[in-house]
């Protein structure tokens, strides 16, 4: 084997363990201090509008997570509100992801299609997504199809645009390699275009995921909705049940955080075996 001086590359370790550990502790401390301050401030004021976090968490638990173990501790409201919301969000996000990646590859593959579509895409992205919901209300009337369509139509643009950018950024030398190896279009997609665009695709998916959550709640705030976390919000508000409103906000924050963490984990799994370039 030849002298391997010079350019040996090693995967970057995430961070030195001691350092990562200290970081985690520090984060926890900041979180606890913030929670403590909130708890203390809310108790001191004693306002019904700003209940302390301990009561909010308790209400969230009794509302949604007081069920039997065989239902994964979900209560009737948990099954009736949280699951339908998540289901509609998953459907909308799934449609946006699949459609956005497919369309993004098509648009990104051809300079001609990109030049043609780019203004339209930039326009579509610039429209504030909730403003589109009334359109879907008219098209689908109220209900799950309208909600899923709102989510999908809002979340599709970031994936689509980022996928197209990623595919366009494919190294031209690698395209030459693919041509010389005579990969067929499917192989070129599978072995070159998608892997090389993957970081862009995930950047788009992260944006789309947070849009999906926003649109999930927003589409449930409208009249004609019968269940969901957004519905719980408006319903509690109409009954002046502020504790439940706060509990729903807490639940949304936790859900958003969990979903984002899950997506990051998937991304790390899929891109972990290559050096960041």
């Amino acid at each position: 084997m030849s002298g391997g001086r010079g350019t040996v590359g090693h995967p970057q370790p995430a961070a030195r363990p001691a350092f990562a550990w200290r970081h985690a502790v520090l984060r926890l401390v900041v979180l606890l201090v913030a929670l403590g301050a909130w708890q203390w401030g809310a108790r001191a004021r004693g306002s019904v509008y700003f209940p302390p976090p301990s009561r909010i968490a308790l209400r969230a638990q009794e509302l949604w997570f007081s069920g039997p173990a065989r239902h994964a501790f979900l209560s009737a409201a948990g099954i009736g509100d949280v699951l339908p919301s998540l289901g509609r969000m998953a459907a909308g996000f799934g449609i946006a992801a699949v459609g956005g990646i497919a369309a993004g590859v098509l648009v990104g593959r051809s300079a001609w299609a990109y030049a043609l579509c780019n203004p339209v895409l930039q326009f579509a992205r610039a429209v504030p997504p909730p403003a589109l919901v009334p359109v879907f209300v008219v098209v689908f009337a109220f209900g799950a199809p309208m909600q899923i369509a709102s989510i999908a139509f809002s979340a599709v643009w970031p994936v689509l645009i980022n996928t197209a950018e990623g595919v366009r950024a494919t190294d031209p030398l690698r395209l030459d390699v693919a041509a010389v190896l005579r990969l067929n279009p499917f192989e070129r997609l599978r072995f070159l275009l998608l892997p090389s665009a993957l970081p862009h695709i995930f950047a788009g998916l992260r944006l789309s995921l947070s849009l999906s959550l926003i649109l999930m709640v927003f589409s449930e705030l409208l009249p004609g909705t019968a269940n969901g976390i957004g519905f719980t919000l408006t319903d509690a508000q109409s009954r002046s049940d502020l504790l439940t409103v706060w509990a729903a906000l807490l639940l949304l924050g936790v859900l958003g955080h969990l979903l984002n963490t899950a997506l990051l984990a998937v991304e790390r799994r899929m891109t972990g075996r290559r050096r960041p370039t």
Partner: peptide, 26 residues
Amino acid sequence: VVFQDYGRSLFPWLTVRDNVALPLRR
């Protein structure tokens, strides 16, 4: 064809074996 810039001509997301086996698919 063998290009000068091996860093770009190989596919970093494939193992060495999968890189070498790629032309055999056809």
